[in-house]
């Protein structure tokens, strides 16, 4: 028998701290697989966020910076400017990238900073216990929108990938989801493409990844993937939003 699926090499052995059924772990694995396939483990410097993914450095065996809340694109800019030949990427949640760190992500993209940002959107604040996120969908109940997100009171979800697509500095941006195997396989291809955009020095790349939060959505994991499909995808349509020129493979 041949091993056809195993833990990627650039992933550590440490069990992940994410709640049962949280699809963040899938994203951790996909990124590690892409790093392995591109053969860039020794040339990668990652920058982590504040939020549920704050411990992501425990699971990737690459050089790593732990940034302050929302500032990962600025930290990654500093890293990339010192090491322009290295692969530099950030991992950030919705609060990190689309609320407190909106300035940093927009200007990193506008500069055409040759980094890759991975944006995990689960439409809620996980680590702090289920408060409204900038990406909470309309009528979504959170601990700070107990009656559901009301557009008249707190407005609409932020569609960051669409916003970044209009910037000239953005070479590639896309939205994917990890709620079922078909989408997971697609997500991996897109993440790989975003890294290749950086390797080809084409400019800034970003992948928004829709992910579940069973704990704070108050749903069993199997129900949570359905909730994502029925509530998040209509608000955040999947697809490539900016493709500067097909990536040369």
């Amino acid at each position: 028998m041949e091993k056809v699926f195993t833990r990627p090499k650039s992933m550590t052995d440490k069990p992940m701290h994410f709640c049962p059924g949280c699809t963040h772990g899938v994203i951790q694995r996909l990124v590690a697989e892409v790093i392995d396939e591109l053969g860039i483990q020794e040339d990668t410097i990652a920058v982590g966020p504040v939020g549920c993914a704050v411990f992501c450095y425990d699971y990737w065996d690459v050089d790593f910076h732990q940034a302050s809340h929302g500032r990962a694109p600025a930290v990654a800019t500093g890293v990339k400017r010192v090491h322009p030949d290295k692969v530099v990427f950030t991992l950030q949640g919705d609060g990190d990238i689309a609320a407190i760190g909106t300035t940093e992500i927009i200007h990193a993209a506008a500069r055409g900073e040759k980094i890759t940002c991975l944006f995990v959107n689960n439409s809620i604040y996980g680590m702090t216990g289920g408060q409204m996120a900038p990406t909470s969908v309309l009528s979504q109940k959170t601990t700070t929108t107990p009656a559901g997100r009301d557009k008249n009171q707190i407005g609409y979800p932020v569609k960051l990938t669409e916003m970044l697509a209009v910037l000239d500095g953005t070479a590639y941006c896309a939205r994917v989801s990890v709620h079922n195997p078909a989408n997971i396989l697609k997500a991996k291809e897109v993440i790989r493409k975003a890294f290749e955009v950086q390797l080809n020095k084409e400019g800034f790349s970003l992948v928004e990844i829709l992910s579940t939060c069973p704990t704070n959505w108050g749903l069993p994991p199997v129900e949570a993937v359905k909730w994502l499909e029925n509530n998040m995808i209509p608000c955040f349509p999947l697809g490539e939003y900016k493709v500067a020129g097909e990536v040369q493979r």
Partner: peptide, 13 residues
């Protein structure tokens, strides 16, 4: 804010 965090990245590098 961005400037000091770029300093963080460059210094750490």
């Amino acid at each position: 804010i961005s400037a000091i965090n770029m300093v963080f990245g460059a210094s750490g590098s």
